[in-house]
Amino acid sequence: MKSVKLYPKVAFDLFYEQFKWAIWFFSFLIAGHIIGMIIVARNDTSIQQFFVFSSQSVAIFMLVCGIIAAYAFMGYYVQHGITRKDLYVGTVISTLALALAVTLVPLAVNVIEHLISNLAALPIDTDAAPLYDPASGWFSAAGIFFLNAFTYHLIGWLIGVGYYRFGWVIGFGFVGIAIAALSLNGYFWGDGGLSSVIPWVPEIPADASPFLALAGSLLLIAVLLVSTRMLTKRISIKM
């Protein structure tokens, strides 16, 4: 039997499965945004544009996807004769693709909303939110959105793997690590979040040094990738 590299196939299947979840998720989110627009229109106020509106929810969605991915796919793939390595590489590639997809969908919806608002007045707040400031360029806004989505999925994955491997008690420690990682991520991107969680950390706005933010974020991603690989490299499969 010729040994075939399986990770591209694994990557495609994992992406396809999670993209199906993402379609459901965006359907609800778009419905939510439309309902939101109807409500704010009555009160004569406005709502954030979809790209900004969805950012928090997308991050949470990716976190949950990551947790489920560890649980649902780890045993299943190895049972069918796929190595942990192929599964790992496949997961990383599929997560990159998924992060890209969940960045592009809100962008597309946002563009559509803008096109509609040119024809009819929509109660959308075009004032930029500080975190994803489209004013500083759509490309960088999308880039930050993408990195954020990717990081959240990796953190979810780490929690899932922690629980899978060590059970509930030690798994709970992984939630702690995850919160630290999330805060760190927020910290790099000038989210007030970290300072509100840990008061003694000084608040540094990201726009003060975008390069530092990017470097920190990439470093965090690297640490997450290495830890997950170490944890799954020789992991025992539950039956």
Partner: peptide, 15 residues
Amino acid sequence: VFENPEKMQQVGFIY
């Protein structure tokens, strides 16, 4: 067999 892609594909474990 452990983490050997060719060998792992050859084993079907049904339980």
